[in-house]
Design a binder for these strands. Structure first.
Length: 149
DNA sequence: GCCAACGTTGGC
DNA sequence: GCCAACGTTGGC
């Protein structure tokens, strides 16, 4: 089983939103690397839910992959901000997974704290300029983050 | 709101 | 295939 991290802007969709909705299609990913990681996800994989672009960026909770990758319907919808005229139903360009709420962390583990921790220095998340919204987390990093909780 | 970093697009 | 222009991400 693999572990992952997915970013969301809490103003748009927070860990509390996921708790309320229980399960959610992770639509709107329009980056090939992030898409490829989603396609590699398997049902039951655990995911850190990261809050980005907000007052206190950090890891706020845990989700799990509920439904493996399938075509993101928003790419076909001209009314959606995620519409992609270059994609077609015959050859969909973008995928999504559905994630299910597992739990909130007892506290949000701040980006600042993650950046300062030598055990996490290899995480793409803490590297300057990284903009990936979906990324793998190795098992040791996963366990270490949870030990900080 | 600023801006550095980065991915994508498109002219050539 | 190069690379400048542009748009987006996301910390601060």
């Amino acid at each position: 089983m693999n572990h992952w991290l997915m970013k969301s802007e809490p103003d748009a969709f927070s860990i509390d939103d996921l708790r309320r909705r229980k399960q959610e299609p992770w639509d709107g990913v329009r980056n090939y690397q992030a898409r490829n990681y989603m396609r590699a996800m398997r049902a039951g994989d655990k995911v850190f839910f990261y809050h980005s672009n907000c007052a206190e960026p950090g890891i706020a909770g845990i989700a799990e992959v509920a439904v493996e990758a399938y075509p993101d319907p928003s790419q076909f919808d001209p009314g959606s901000k995620y519409f992609d005229p270059a994609s077609s139903r015959d050859a969909p360009r973008w995928s999504l997974v559905e994630v299910r709420f597992v739990r909130k962390l007892r506290r949000t583990i701040a980006l600042k704290e993650l950046q300062a921790d030598p055990a996490l220095a290899a995480m793409p998340l803490v590297r300057k300029g990284n903009r990936l919204s979906v990324m793998p987390v190795d098992a040791a990093e996963w366990a270490h983050v949870l030990s900080l909780e």
